[in-house]
């Protein structure tokens, strides 16, 4: 048995038919081994979310296969997919996506319940995870009472609760400040390094490159060579350094942006966005 936790082969997803047909993902091949962090970057609409949904057994591919621990998820009947999602995957979402009526502890316990762990065992496991992430004093707090960083730590605890093979994280550092973003990145790195999980992250955040073993660039549904990348100084997202990308010349240097709005904001007061000049 090889060390690949999740493998996609010639993965394809087509939405619609005829004139309105969209090939969101086009024949992607991907392997992520245990202990590895793979970062998938790309512009909006490039197919990142569709790819992540297929890898997480939430969306059936039009063709190709997704293998998790040697099982082809694309061939499994619909009725078996929930069990796979509950036990083999951990999900981390962009907006934390905690259940608002449950406490931090219950959010983690709920994930354990779905995988069949109940009662005291689930409580002890959830509590240990949250304490391990420094949330021992927040166990009974509902999400609305937690900071963004705390919410994301609860979400990562929830993702790790069932000791999954693969963690799929969608923009895990979005909406977090730099310090907390680094902390969340470190937690995901640790999940791979110390616990041997495979971590697939979809993000625009270039800071995550620091913890990634592999960085993949997805554009128009295909992995492409990563061109020279630049960081949008306004929003911090990674953008391609190419002529059609919105850009602006300032004091002999070219700055690239993810949108014309960011470029205009930068142009109005460049020093605000250049750290050593601000």
């Amino acid at each position: 048995m090889d060390d690949v936790a999740i493998r996609a082969e010639r993965l394809e997803k087509v939405f619609g038919e005829g004139d309105v047909q969209v090939r969101a993902v086009r024949g992607i091949d991907l392997e992520v081994v245990r202990g590895q962090v793979a970062l998938i970057m790309g512009p909006s609409g490039s197919g990142k979310t569709t790819l992540l949904s297929m890898l997480g057994a939430m969306l059936r591919p039009t063709s190709g296969k997704v293998e998790l621990d040697g099982v082809d998820l694309a061939r499994l009947p619909e009725s078996r997919l929930p069990d796979f999602r509950a036990t083999r995957f951990g999900f981390v979402f962009q907006d934390f996506n905690l259940l608002s009526s449950l406490s931090a502890l219950e959010n983690v316990q709920f994930a354990l319940n779905l995988a069949g762990t109940t009662g005291r065992k689930s409580r002890e496991r959830a509590e240990a995870l949250l304490r391990g992430f420094g949330l021992g004093h927040r166990l009974s707090f509902r999400p609305e009472k937690l900071s963004g960083g705390e919410k994301q730590r609860v979400a990562i605890s929830r993702a790790l609760a069932n000791e999954p093979s693969v963690i799929l994280a969608d923009e895990p550092t979005a909406n977090l400040d730099s310090k907390i973003g680094h902390e969340i990145a470190r937690l995901l790195r640790n999940a791979a390094t110390e616990e041997g999980r495979s971590v697939v992250i979809v993000s625009h955040d270039t800071r995550l490159k620091d913890i990634a073993d592999r960085v993949l660039w997805l554009e128009d549904g295909e992995f492409r060579e990563i061109n020279e990348m630049a960081v949008d100084p306004v929003c911090g997202m990674a953008v391609e350094r190419k002529p059609e990308t919105p850009h602006y010349q300032y004091e002999g240097q070219t700055y690239y942006f993810c949108s014309p709005e960011d470029r205009d904001e930068f142009a109005a007061e460049p020093t605000k966005f250049i750290p050593d000049r601000g």
Binding site: P82, L99, F110, A111, L114
Partner: peptide, 9 residues
């Protein structure tokens, strides 16, 4: 949706 994504039948 989260509950379903997490594996609720």
């Amino acid at each position: 949706g989260i509950v379903k994504a997490m594996g609720a039948r």
